[in-house]
């Protein structure tokens, strides 16, 4: 499971969200999925079961780490916790856009995170090279 935070105040939240779609709808569409973080907040049984049954990669936009914490509070297994801000280190001076829309720089950062998640997912699945 790839689970981004629901960050709505900063561009970081949108970058994580789009990186998730890049993985679950593209790079590894047949090996990964996402779910609504709000469902975990609600305690939805299916969502709770999903994070408990599958290894999770969380993508958080800020240090409050809502995605990671909510998965952990639901008894889920966070195999990798990614912070969007970390990815910015490789894009110094980038102007990524806003919480509403990404610029070209923002899409590049999102793609870098997606590639990282893709590699991590392949490693977790133990079938490196088979995740497209």
């Amino acid at each position: 499971m790839v689970i981004p935070c629901s960050g709505i105040g900063k561009v970081h939240g949108l970058i994580g969200r789009e990186a998730t779609y890049r993985v679950t709808d593209g790079l590894a569409y047949d090996k990964t999925a996402t779910l609504c973080l709000a469902l975990l907040v609600k305690g939805d049984p299916e969502a709770v079961e999903a994070v408990q049954r599958h290894r999770c990669i969380t993508i958080d936009g800020c240090a409050k780490a809502c995605a990671q914490k909510n998965v952990e509070m639901s008894g889920g297994r966070v195999a990798k916790a990614i912070q969007v801000a970390e990815a910015f280190r490789n894009f110094r001076g980038a102007r990524p856009g806003t919480a509403t829309a990404l610029t070209e720089d923002g899409w590049k950062i999102s793609e870098a995170i997606a590639q990282s998640v893709h590699c991590e997912a392949a490693e977790l699945l133990g079938v490196e090279g088979t995740v497209r």
């Binding site: 935070c5 709000a38 975990l40 907040v41 409050k64 809502c66 914490k69 509070m73």
Partner: peptide, 9 residues
């Protein structure tokens, strides 16, 4: 506004 999951985290 506030991010919904912050109610827990």
């Amino acid at each position: 506004t506030l991010c919904l999951p912050l109610f827990l985290a």
